[in-house]
């Protein structure tokens, strides 16, 4: 038995897939003591109104995020590179969903 009792539960990010075939979407966060509890809490907090068919949770401190200060450097240079969009190709009719 651990002698130190943590007063705060870790934070988890919750991703819910609304139906098969779609992607899991981030829908919020919650506190839970362990992975199993996090899944159950996510079920109870975020899928009460039939929003879900699958749930992912991940510890918030395991997510590596880009620095908001790097926003200009990271994202602005893409602004004038329209040639990166695949809109200059004629697609065969049989290719759907591009």
């Amino acid at each position: 038995m651990s002698t130190e009792v943590k007063q705060e539960w870790p934070l988890w990010e919750v991703f819910v897939r609304s139906k098969a075939g779609l992607d899991h979407k981030h829908c919020g966060s919650l506190h839970a003591a362990d992975p199993k509890m996090a899944i159950q809490m996510a079920r109870d907090v975020y899928t009460r109104r039939q929003e879900g068919s699958s749930i992912w949770v991940v510890r918030s401190d395991q997510i590596v995020a880009s620095d908001p200060g790097d926003k200009d450097m990271f994202f602005d240079p893409a602004e004038d590179k329209v040639y990166r969009h695949p809109t200059f190709y004629a697609l065969p009719k049989s290719v759907d969903h591009m």
């Binding site: 506190h31 109870d44 907090v45 009460r48």
Partner: peptide, 11 residues
């Protein structure tokens, strides 16, 4: 004890 469990109990 926590908000999440409050909702779980009510469910």
């Amino acid at each position: 004890p926590v908000l999440e469990e409050d909702i779980a109990m009510a469910n």
